[in-house]
């Protein structure tokens, strides 16, 4: 015991102790400076995480990139790709995810994110052509791939293929979209025009423009009557002017009925497309929960 103390004493009394102390102090100071430099890699990492969580992606990316210039971290590379994708910068996003495929633990996540970008870029056939047998997000991938049929312009596949993968809540929407896309309630342009050729305005009413249809009937009728009346009274010039006006509105209405039907159809189509888009947006493109994000 005493021996120990003596040893200690010798140690503390030696010059060596003071050197040691000096080094210790310097070292501590150095360490401290590291931890309080706001721009040290670690602090940039922490600040970046805060910005990312606040969805301040552009600033977060800056911090992450600075950290990555001296360190390696695949989580950050993934988060940068994710942030670019969220901001709509798909080419940068793809660059990051592609780097992660093959040499990181985020292979599956990156592959899924790349698929999502295919969807966002409307490269639907590319999206569906990929298959990943070992993908741990198999369900999510299939959901996204099958859903893309609804957004695509091509012929719809068999409903069994499409419906089998979704859960009950999703199926309500998917089934509705599928049926509406398969049998859209379109109006025929030709039929609208023919209707209006027989009864002015009828085609417009058929295409859902009741007010315009009645107006067309009144205008054509009124000018025809005035033309007839003036012919009867032998006011030739006036009669021909009214005949011209009547023909003008009659022809315009036939044309307009076809146009109205086309606009009606476009409305049906675009509304459906919009609903399809809104739903997948709400579902966040069937993205699985990544536990290292949020």
């Amino acid at each position: 015991m005493i021996n120990n103390f003596v040893q200690c004493r010798i140690f503390f009394n030696s010059k060596f102790f003071f050197y040691h102390l000096l080094i210790l102090l310097l070292f501590q100071n150095f360490g401290f400076a590291q931890s309080t430099n706001l721009f040290s890699p670690n602090n940039r990492f922490k600040f970046g995480n805060y910005l990312f969580q606040e969805r301040d992606y552009l600033r977060a990316i800056d911090e992450y990139k600075s950290y990555l210039s001296t360190n390696k971290n695949d989580t950050l590379n993934f988060k940068i790709g994710f942030a670019y994708s969220r901001m709509g910068n798909y080419s940068e996003s793809e660059r990051y995810f592609k780097k992660l495929i093959g040499k990181s633990i985020f292979i599956d996540e990156s592959k899924f994110e790349l698929l999502k970008i295919n969807y966002l870029r409307e490269n639907f056939s590319d999206l569906r052509s990929k298959s990943f047998p070992s993908n741990k997000f198999r369900t999510e991938t299939l959901k996204l791939q099958h859903y893309s049929y609804l957004s695509d312009e091509i012929e719809l596949p068999d409903s069994n293929l499409l419906f089998s993968i979704y859960n009950d809540d999703e199926l309500i929407f998917v089934r509705d979209f599928y049926n509406r896309k398969l049998n859209p309630e379109y109006k025929s342009k030709t039929f609208a025009a023919i209707l209006s050729a027989f009864i002015p305005g009828a085609g417009k009413i058929y295409a859902g423009e009741t007010g315009d249809g009645i107006t067309a009937l009144i205008l054509t009728g009124l000018f025809s009557f005035l033309a007839y009346d003036n012919f009867q009274a032998d006011h030739k010039i006036r009669a021909w002017i009214f005949t011209g006006l009547s023909a003008f509105f009659y022809a315009g209405n036939i044309y307009g009925s076809a146009a109205a039907a086309q606009i009606y159809n476009a409305g049906i189509k675009l509304n459906l497309e919009n609903e399809i888009q809104v739903f997948i947006n709400q579902k966040k493109y069937f993205t699985p929960r990544y536990d290292f994000i949020d």
């Binding site: 003008f248 315009g252 209405n253």
Partner: peptide, 16 residues
């Protein structure tokens, strides 16, 4: 001209 006639009809529509 046909499009204009159609527009004129829509313009004359009192129920719009």
């Amino acid at each position: 001209t046909l499009m204009f006639a159609d527009r004129f009809t829509r313009d004359s529509n009192l129920f719009k």
